[in-house]
């Protein structure tokens, strides 16, 4: 390398010559990769921050927008609907992800035990995940109609308890929330099921056999061996699903349009509305920056847990 730099001065010290040096040249790919990264990720982010500082409703031309400081941030923080939507989103995500975890886990546990038709079940359980959200939303809006199929199915179960099976899935504030949660659960349990199925498959059978020989019951094996070993899979499922569920949007738009009132307005829908319906770009940008900070700290928390958990379980390769 020293030789390279020494021979360089022979040429006119232009840009090409400078680039031709090996130590520079080697960096070119990195510069390009980093550049792409900046372009793809950082630029929109910087732009969003910039917009968040503007006083700008899109019903005025952009040319009339001006920087007004942190006013939008203050407005977002002072907007009760922002907090309600956020809280509601956490509630939806919490309920949906919990159900998806429990259901996906149970299904995976059942299917994991080899039995006939296992493949068929796996395929069936995976179908919902592959359906386009719009189709899910549309189908569910038909299923949820109060004289519709879901209530008809529930009728024989509910009537003996004196409950009228005319649940207003789309118009009762709480039922509508659960309509959205259940649609999400229907669609995404497939994913948790898949994660847990591969989690179960990756569990070394010797560990379970060892526990059996030591006299552990099925429950003890589950509680003390399988569950702790599946922790990474659980964390992955929680992180992935929570990330997605916090963005819950399609179902809310398609099933209830955020209603009745704003009882199914999620934070993503709130943002969409502020930006694309109300044209409050500056406000929306500020809200999305705040959300980005909030969500990424959550996600990094999840990833940190995962990495720690993985490290603890790591078996050194080729013991001995």
């Amino acid at each position: 390398m020293v030789a390279e730099t020494e021979t360089a001065p022979r040429r006119p010290a232009g840009l090409t010559a400078w680039l031709a040096q090996e130590r520079v040249f080697r960096l070119v790919p990195f510069v390009m990769v980093e550049g792409m990264f900046l372009l793809l990720l950082a630029l929109p982010f910087v732009l969003t921050i910039y917009i968040s500082l503007l006083r700008w409703r899109a019903n005025r031309p952009f040319e009339q927008a001006y920087v007004q400081g942190f006013v939008n941030y203050a407005r977002v923080i002072g907007e009760p609907e922002f907090w309600w939507s956020l809280g509601r989103t956490f509630y939806f995500a919490g309920a949906a992800v919990t159900l998806e975890l429990v259901l996906g886990f149970s299904l995976a546990m059942l299917v994991h035990q080899a039995f006939r038709g296992r493949r068929l079940y796996i395929t069936i359980f995976l179908i919902p995940m592959m359906v386009v959200p719009v189709v899910v939303g549309y189908n569910f809006s038909m299923i949820y109609v109060d004289s519709g199929p879901l209530n008809q199915i529930l009728a024989p179960i509910l009537t003996p308890f004196g409950v009228t099976a005319r649940i207003r899935w789309l118009s009762h504030p709480i039922a509508a929330q659960w309509a959205i949660i259940l649609a999400d659960v229907w669609q995404w349990t497939s994913l948790t099921f898949l994660i847990f199925l591969s989690g179960f498959a990756a569990l070394p059978p010797e560990l379970i056999n060892a526990a059996r020989v030591m006299g552990a019951s099925r429950w003890q094996i589950f509680r003390r061996i399988q569950l702790p070993l599946l922790k990474p899979a659980i964390i992955i499922a929680v992180v992935i699903r929570t990330m997605e569920a916090l963005k819950l949007f399609d179902q809310a738009v398609l099933l209830t349009f955020g209603g009745p009132g704003d009882s199914t307005q999620t934070i993503a829908f709130f943002l969409w509305r502020q930006v694309w319906q109300f044209n409050k770009y500056g406000f929306g940008a500020a809200a999305s920056v705040l959300l980005l900070l909030l969500f990424s700290s959550l996600i990094y928390g999840g990833i940190y847990l995962l990495v720690r958990e993985r490290a603890l379980l790591q078996q050194p390769e080729g013991r001995g």
Partner: peptide, 9 residues
């Protein structure tokens, strides 16, 4: 067991 099957957690 062959690979000892110690419980890693």
């Amino acid at each position: 067991f062959q690979n000892l099957a110690l419980f890693p957690h």
